[in-house]
């Protein structure tokens, strides 16, 4: 019996990140960033940063209303990467210090949430 892929073909390398980083709402993506470990963030960023351009290019070919379940997961991974990239690439070792203040911020509306 074959196990159905969680992501579109070509993006299998990101499958292991789906449970933690496939998140549907911006406010929850921020919280996931703030509640994650440096190792978890670094692993996800290292695996996803070079794949993201191809993922967005592929997803750009159709509106989100036509996404398959796998494509929706990939989109949500890309949106989580937007947060995690800032944590890893910009904040780096200062992320914990940064998170101490960011926890007071609430995302109340997001254009990226569809």
């Amino acid at each position: 019996m074959s196990v159905e892929s969680q992501l579109p073909a070509g993006f299998e390398s990101l499958e292991r990140f789906v449970p933690q980083w496939c998140i549907g709402r911006s406010c929850d993506r921020l919280q996931a960033r703030l509640n994650s470990t440096a190792r978890e963030r670094a692993d996800f960023f290292a695996a996803a940063k070079d794949i993201a351009p191809a993922a967005l290019e592929m997803l750009d070919r159709k509106p989100s209303s036509d996404y398959t379940v796998q494509e929706t997961r990939l989109m949500n991974l890309c949106l989580a990467l937007a947060h995690i990239a800032l944590a890893v690439e910009i904040q780096g070792p200062d992320e914990d210090h940064h998170a101490a203040s960011a926890k007071y911020i609430a995302i109340t509306r997001s254009a990226a949430d569809r």
């Binding site: 921020l30 967005l56 997803l59 750009d60 989100s64």
Partner: peptide, 23 residues
């Protein structure tokens, strides 16, 4: 439109501004 690259750019821009405000 709700293309993926637009949503990604919006999310990154928001998260960038949010980082600065939180600091």
């Amino acid at each position: 439109d709700d293309k993926a690259s637009r949503r990604f750019a919006q999310e990154y821009a928001m998260a960038t501004a949010l980082d600065i405000h939180s600091e």
